[in-house]
Nucleic acid binder design. Structure first.
Lengths: 345, 345
DNA sequence: CTGAAAGCGCTTACAG
DNA sequence: CTGAAAGCGCTTACAG
């Protein structure tokens, strides 16, 4: 009446009752006919009539109502610390792909690596009655909260950022081994005085990379320089800040292992500001092989973390935990790989 | 019985009835007492008793049930073409921030810039009865589907990728103006023979950037070289491929306007493979000022698209459309800005 | 094979 | 100010 667009909300969505009326059967019959796992209970003729009615009316199942009745929402919360960190995009995509196949939908939330937001986000997701939670945002201090969540009946899956003693299901990569690869590579390139640019120690992957690097460095016979400071968050900005300190404190290091690629980028910024050059004055190895690592100035040698695979496993684990509540928490680990580029000469 | 962890799903969540029993009042009273907008209807004493009971039992409102009754899910679908493209992270974060404030939650889905997945994702979101849809994934061919969605009562907000004639609410940046800035910058740097590295023409921002660049180029008196090919998707890979053609067909161009930063990165790859240098042999301007643009080799001159703001406006628009269904579709546009870096010398 | 009824956990007119 | 009842749109024992 009032033009072809401009207004909306004039349509009432079609329900099971509408379909029942159209097909001249009871709603319960419609419900069964339209549910693949129950449609065998319905006669062929009825099933066809119902299908035709549903089709012609444009019926679309109300997943929220259905979920309320069945006690499932068919959603899985996915909590990431920083949606702008490119490593999480493939993780999320991997999760989405597996969930899709199983009829679940991811609900992605970002904590901005902040404690309060983390709590808030979890609360919100619980109010929405997610069937499981996958998080790549855990820090050590979150362990009690996540364990009690698990204990109270919501499957919790730790991806990337695991919590070693928690007993929760987890999917990660072998970061100690990855960091050891970085150390060996630098040794092979002839470096003897090295340092690490460290991320937050209360985040498992960073502490694991730290341990792995130090152990291998000692085994090989490196001189390892250290500073107390670490990046509070694994971002370019924090990386640049800590790199300033590191380069000032230890001008003799010839190579740095940055515990992730964003920190490595910050280090490159710092280095450039000091008028020094990579790889001639300083070799750099990053971690993750984030999307931009091949395109930075110079391209970054880095340890590839197979993020997409981690996402797929995490999604599959979530579904498994939902379907079989009393199963022991599964753990998976994928293998990292060293990618050599110009930043190590 | 069986250890402290290992199993779960043993807890039944507490409902309004549990709280009612504990507080010795009727459920309807509990419902009112716990709803800020209705709690004034309840006596102070009762309200306090209810609050205490809810607190002690750890009651958490079942947003799904509540939504079913109220006819709202308080969720907004957010559809992006490629979650791995760094420009969408700030858009999504902007949306999340505004929705948060209004009690809504974003449900993010990725179409992988694929038609079929787009349709699938929309279907899924409709089954979940999202209150509104924000999409940054629209191509021209999606217009009918999105218009009919709007007509059938679901607010649809176009962000970044708008559809000019659709009459749908939209939030974008003035891409024609942004591209004109790029042209003027190249002119000022003394370039006279230029070309564009084009993204898909059925995506509004790319066609707008194309128009804006060509118009300004003609006004200024550039010699504008063209090839038929355009990148099917705005990715590094496609950019590299089309750049190969462009550089081969027109070796005389001294500057290229890449219609987004990922395409610019592809161009840099191609250039490097040809043994040519940026900015000495070729100046490059990108678009978006994506996270990595400041860190590429060389750092990229680009037109900044204020993605976070676009996200905020899109979120606010969604809420406005939900609250006031019969309002004319709002349009907003934010202003782009030229960021000069080393890729133009 | 199909129908009638109960109920998932809420909210909200309607009485009192 | 509070309670009792109906109902959001589904699913699923329970009868027949």
């Amino acid at each position: 009446m009032d033009g072809s667009e401009a207004t909306h909300r004039d349509n009432v969505p079609v329900t099971l009752h509408d379909v029942a009326r159209e097909a001249q059967v009871h709603v319960s019959t419609v419900s069964r006919a339209l549910d693949p796992s129950k449609s065998s209970l319905v006669s062929d003729r009825t099933r066809e009539r119902v299908a035709a009615a549903a089709e012609s009316l444009g019926y679309r199942r109300h997943l929220v109502a259905s979920g309320l009745r069945r006690g499932r929402t068919f959603t899985v919360g996915v909590v990431v610390p920083d949606i702008a960190n490119p490593i999480y995009a493939p993780v999320v995509r991997g999760i989405a792909h597996t969930l899709d196949d199983e009829g679940y939908m991811p609900v992605v939330a970002d904590t901005e690596d902040d404690d309060e937001r983390f709590a808030q986000v979890i609360n919100h997701l619980l109010s929405r009655r997610i069937d499981a939670l996958i998080t790549t945002a855990a820090r050590e201090r979150d362990e009690p909260r996540l364990r009690s969540l698990w204990a109270s009946g919501t499957p919790v899956i730790l991806a990337v950022r695991t919590l070693s003693g928690s007993g929760l299901p987890s999917v990660d990569s072998n970061d100690e081994a990855g960091a050891a690869m970085a150390a060996r590579h630098l040794w092979d390139r002839g470096h003897r005085v090295v340092a690490q640019l460290r991320g937050p120690h209360d985040v498992e992957p960073f502490s694991a990379r730290g341990r792995g690097f130090v152990e291998e460095a000692e085994r090989l016979g490196f001189e390892l320089r250290t500073i107390d400071e670490e990046a509070a968050r694994p971002t370019i900005e924090d990386g640049e800040h800590v790199a300033d300190r590191l380069l000032t404190a230890h001008p003799d290091v010839t190579a740095v292992f940055a515990q992730n690629d964003l920190l490595a980028l910050g280090l490159l910024m710092s280095l450039r500001r000091l008028g020094r050059n990579c790889p001639d004055d300083l070799a750099i190895v990053g971690y993750n092989d984030a999307m931009f690592a091949a395109h930075s100035d110079p391209p970054l040698t880095t340890v590839r973390l197979p993020t997409y695979e981690v996402g797929r496993h995490a999604g599959a684990t979530a579904v498994a935990c939902i379907d079989r509540p009393h199963t022991p928490p599964p753990r998976r680990s994928v293998t990292p790989e060293l990618i050599v580029r110009a930043s190590t000469g």
